Amino acid sequence: MKLYLDCEFTQLSPAAKLISLALVAEDGSEFYVELLDTWSHQDCSDFVIEIVLPQLWHGSYAMPVFAARDALLAFLEGFTETLEIVTDAPQYDWELFCELAYVNGRWPSNVLNRPTDAATLYACNDGAPLPHHALLDARIIAGMFVAPD
């Protein structure tokens, strides 16, 4: 099963810190989380401050990193099949996903340990412009590759 990943993070640099992460599965299952304690406003680029931060949903989606990690692992463990993570930005999104998914020297047993670059897949359509919200973007990316019923 393919899971389409998108992340929002503080800046386009190796120092990027995860702000939010979303996964949308081929079966329609979704996961979304916003991290409270891994970044600060001062870490963010002007683009992130102006475009990304105002779109955060807060509420029950916002949690400390340890709770976010537990929620992510529970979501992944809910699948019986092998999971393939697809992203349009493997150099950022995959690295940030790994930081959250890799715990105490253990990788989730049902998740392939390498990403699939969305650019290598055949898209059914061009998708819509990405609004730079992790869950909305992941839905759009998934919709580019999952043919409607």
Rank of each mutant, 00 (worst) to 15 (best):
S13Q: 09
S13I: 07
S13G: 13
P14C: 07
A15M: 08
A15G: 05
A16P: 07
A16C: 09
K17P: 05
K17N: 05
I19V: 15
I19W: 08
S20H: 05
S20P: 05
L21S: 12
L21W: 09
A22T: 07
A22W: 06
L23D: 11
L23T: 10
V24W: 04
V24L: 04
V24G: 04
V24Y: 04
A25D: 02
A25W: 00
A25P: 00
A25Q: 01
A25M: 03
D27R: 05
D27L: 02
G28W: 04
G28P: 05
E30W: 08
E30L: 08
E30I: 08
E30F: 06
F31G: 03
Y32R: 05
E34T: 01
E34Y: 00
E34L: 02
L35Q: 11
L35G: 13
L35A: 14
L36W: 09
L36D: 13
D37E: 00
D37W: 00
D37F: 00
T38N: 06
W39A: 06
W39F: 11
S40L: 02
H41P: 07
Q42H: 11
Q42C: 06
Q42I: 09
Q42S: 13
D43C: 06
D43H: 09
S45K: 03
D46I: 14
D46V: 15
F47T: 03
F47P: 06
F47I: 03
V48P: 06
V48N: 07
V48R: 09
E50L: 05
E50H: 11
E50R: 14
E50A: 11
E50W: 02
E50D: 13
E50S: 09
I51K: 12
I51D: 07
V52A: 07
L53H: 02
L53I: 11
P54N: 03
P54A: 03
P54T: 01
P54K: 04
P54I: 02
P54V: 01
Q55W: 00
Q55V: 01
Q55L: 08
Q55M: 06
Q55S: 04
L56S: 04
L56Q: 13
L56P: 03
W57F: 12
W57V: 14
W57D: 14
H58A: 15
H58I: 09
H58V: 10
H58N: 13
G59Q: 11
G59S: 14
S60Y: 05
A62F: 01
A62P: 00
M63A: 15
M63T: 15
P64D: 15
P64Q: 12
V65M: 14
F66C: 13
F66N: 15
A68F: 08
R69H: 05
R69G: 07
D70I: 01
D70G: 02
D70K: 06
A71H: 15
A71K: 15
L72P: 00
L73K: 03
L73C: 00
L73N: 01
L73V: 00
L73D: 02
L73I: 05
L73Q: 03
A74L: 00
L76G: 02
L76E: 02
E77D: 15
G78T: 10
G78S: 10
G78N: 12
T80D: 13
